[in-house]
Design a protein around this nucleic acid. Structure first.
Lengths: 134, 134
DNA sequence: ATGCATGCAAATGTTTTGCATTATA
DNA sequence: TATAATGCAAAACATTTGCATGCAT
């Protein structure tokens, strides 16, 4: 965390594949990513997936996170603020992305707290429509 | 995720120690927890820490999460809504807890989205006061 | 030629588990 | 006494890395 974020971006064919999948599908873990990537290029290895993820993360293109299930999932930052929101169903585990404008309000609060915000992430836990029905 | 959350709560001496530390300090990883727990009872093992964490998580007393650094950290849910907020410094990695009322606004949004919210978690990424100063 | 990118397999670090033992209802 | 909790060491995963090879500049 001492080095500044890298600026150059070398998009090799495999990195392109990985980034494209991430843009289309969002919040995937490394293995899911590998599986999808192999449909486009069967020779991609898990190591390449992880290295590409690290590469993108260093350059602030993506972000990794987990809700405590043991593995990380990854997703691209939003173009603008990097703001992001999730609905996480605590019953079936489904994760759905939601975008909202309300994040600005929190940025205001953050400023008051002497915290320069570069991105925000909101997780709402509860029951999705399907699970709430039961 | 198919079973309903457990309701009985057996608080053994070691579980008490672990929960107490979590209440006092919040967002600790398993090893940090082990270290602190051993000051109160040097014979506690790592397995017990992990088992206690799983036990509390099943009963919705705590929550595990990670920001992609490879290990999970754990924290107790808030008594009321389970709402929680973090400031995560992207430079030094420091995590600070913040509580806010604005979370209600998002709950309103969630209802519109057919999502019954039981808890919310907001992460704001950026630079903490110290790091922003440099 | 040189510097990355990559695959493979080995190494790491975290989290989980099997089994024997101990504590508790 | 029966059930659940615990320690220890082994196992299981997810993630990272070393090394040899290949690709691109």
């Amino acid at each position: 965390m001492t080095k500044p974020a890298q600026t150059t971006l070398r998009l090799t064919p495999r990195r392109q594949i990985i980034l494209e999948i991430l843009r289309e599908r969002g919040h995937l873990d490394a293995y899911g990513l590998l599986e999808l990537a192999r449909r486009k290029d069967p020779r991609i290895s898990l190591a390449t997936v992880y290295r590409a993820l690290a590469y993108f993360r260093e350059r602030n293109l993506i972000q990794g996170r987990s809700f405590g299930e043991g593995r990380s999932h990854f997703e691209v930052h939003d173009a603008g603020t990097g703001a992001h929101a999730h609905f996480v169903c605590t019953r079936c585990g489904k994760v759905r992305e939601v975008k909202g404008k309300f994040i600005r309000d929190m940025e205001a609060l953050a400023q008051r707290e002497r915290f320069r915000v570069t991105g925000a992430h909101l997780d709402l836990f509860g029951l999705c429509g399907d699970c709430a029905a039961r």
